[in-house]
Simulated scan of single mutants.
Amino acid sequence: MISTDAWVLYAGPETETARQPIPGELRRETFTFPDLDDDEVLVEPLYGSWEANLDHALSRNPVDICRQRREEKIVLGNGALVRVIERGRNVKSLGEGDVCMVMPFGKRDENGFAELVFAYDAPGTIGVMARRTKVHADNLVPLPSGSRHSLLRWTTYGRYFTAWDNWKVASACWRAQLPHADPEKHLVFGWGGGTTLAELALAKREGFRVAMTASNDARLREIAELGITPVDRRRFPNLAYDEKRYRDDPEYRTAYKASEHVLLETIAELSDGKGVSIFLDNLGGGLYRATMRAIGRTGIVSTVGWKTGMRLWNLRATECINRRLHVHTHAWRHGDSETIRDFQEATDWIGPEPTEVFDFDDVPKLADAYLHGRVETYFPIYRVNGT
């Protein structure tokens, strides 16, 4: 058995389906796990990236992930740079001391896409929020030898790998309907976090007009520095749509309609009145009505996340008549991992040098800051064994 210092999440109390879940908290303790199997690697995480699935796990929304895995406690974290310490006897592709990115594949389908996610809903997997952990060797992708980029910049890779896959599908769908259209005349617009930002950088490379919302000055500057038009989210603060309140509360309805009007005026100005051609919406929930009002004919709504809500409603006739396509992806294809890594190294399509790095002792502070929107950067990082 192997013992390590880790942040651990315990299963929550059993609750009735109708009740709200009770959020969990991370506990610092010694965590013990079995010795290496022949195809596994023992690693020490260096830097971890705070991903949205950590927030889902701690909020127990949409599920209590411990109970779904039928485990009393788990170690989370599936985005990190790690250093190889020891190899199982069948591992030949990695050497001790290699620095690698962790790929979050717990179970893959026949096409190489994730069905279960490592250190989230894949039973028995042990995440990187620990001084040591173990990973299947084929879930480790070494950094490029002699990379121009710092370890901290490479730690942002998870959002970029996800963005690469989602954008590839969304762009192909748009071109399937309009193969001869000039991207310079079409707007790609997004709200969300680092994944949306990374996708917009790819859209810009393809010649599209690009714009993104943010609600603090630091993020607006970060967007502008990438050559993406920043749109201040504070100009339309009341876009969270609630059907019952919209019907029953005149004051709420007036505030919502005013915010939606400002958004649609902004979109019209940016798109020459055409509406959004590809809308990157990784939030969903109450913002989805505004998303669909902003999309033009033959438009694409593309999502790889559901931070503010999973359940969406569409009028299918309207979507058919307007020829609007809906793209839903999750993570990326396992076999594309090295291709994406090499594209990042060759093109400098990689996250900025992180400005917020939390110590391992302060991981719960990072969790709280992320939950309450107090993290300014799109790429929050925590240090495990890094310097």
Rank of each mutant, 00 (worst) to 15 (best):
R148I: 15
G158R: 10
L197R: 09
R148S: 15
D182T: 06
D182G: 10
L202N: 02
G158L: 15
K204W: 13
H180R: 05
P183G: 10
V188A: 05
P179A: 05
T162V: 13
A201S: 02
G194H: 08
G158N: 08
A203F: 03
G158F: 09
W191K: 11
W191Q: 09
L200A: 13
Q177R: 09
T156S: 04
G193Y: 12
L187F: 03
T196D: 14
N166K: 02
T162F: 00
E184Y: 12
H180N: 06
T156E: 02
A181V: 14
L143H: 04
R148N: 15
T196V: 15
T156C: 15
S171F: 02
H149S: 03
A198G: 08
W174S: 08
Y157T: 03
W154G: 02
N166V: 01
Y157Q: 02
P183R: 01
L152K: 08
E199M: 14
L202Y: 11
S145I: 08
G192S: 11
F161S: 10
H149E: 06
G194D: 02
L200W: 07
Q177Y: 08
A172L: 08
W191I: 07
E199Y: 12
P144K: 11
S150H: 06
S147G: 07
K168P: 00
G192F: 04
S150R: 04
W174K: 05
A201Q: 01
L187Q: 04
A170E: 00
Y157M: 08
T155E: 14
L143D: 01
L178D: 15
L200P: 05
G190F: 05
W154D: 03
W174A: 10
A181R: 12
R159W: 01
L200I: 04
A176C: 09
F161D: 06
G190H: 09
W191N: 09
W164M: 06
S145N: 07
R205V: 07
R159V: 06
H180W: 05
A198M: 11
H149G: 01
S150K: 13
K185F: 02
L152Y: 10
E199S: 04
W167H: 03
G158M: 02
A176M: 03
R175S: 12
W154V: 01
L152A: 05
L178T: 12
T155Q: 13
Q177G: 08
T162K: 00
A163T: 10
Y157S: 10
S171A: 04
F161V: 00
H180G: 13
D182Y: 05
A201D: 07
G158E: 04
D165T: 10
A170M: 00
A172V: 08
R159S: 13
D182S: 12
L200Y: 07
S147Y: 14
V169N: 05
P179S: 08
G192V: 12
L197T: 07
P183C: 04
L187H: 07
A203Q: 08
S147F: 06
A176V: 04
E184K: 08
R205L: 09
L200D: 14
S145V: 08
S147W: 12
W191V: 10
A203I: 09
G190L: 01
H180Q: 11
P144G: 14
G158V: 00
A198I: 05
R205N: 13
G192E: 02
K185R: 01
E184V: 07
W191C: 06
D182K: 04
L197C: 14
S147L: 12
R148E: 15
F189G: 01
L187D: 12
R175D: 02
A201Y: 01
T156K: 03
S145K: 03
D165A: 14
T196F: 14
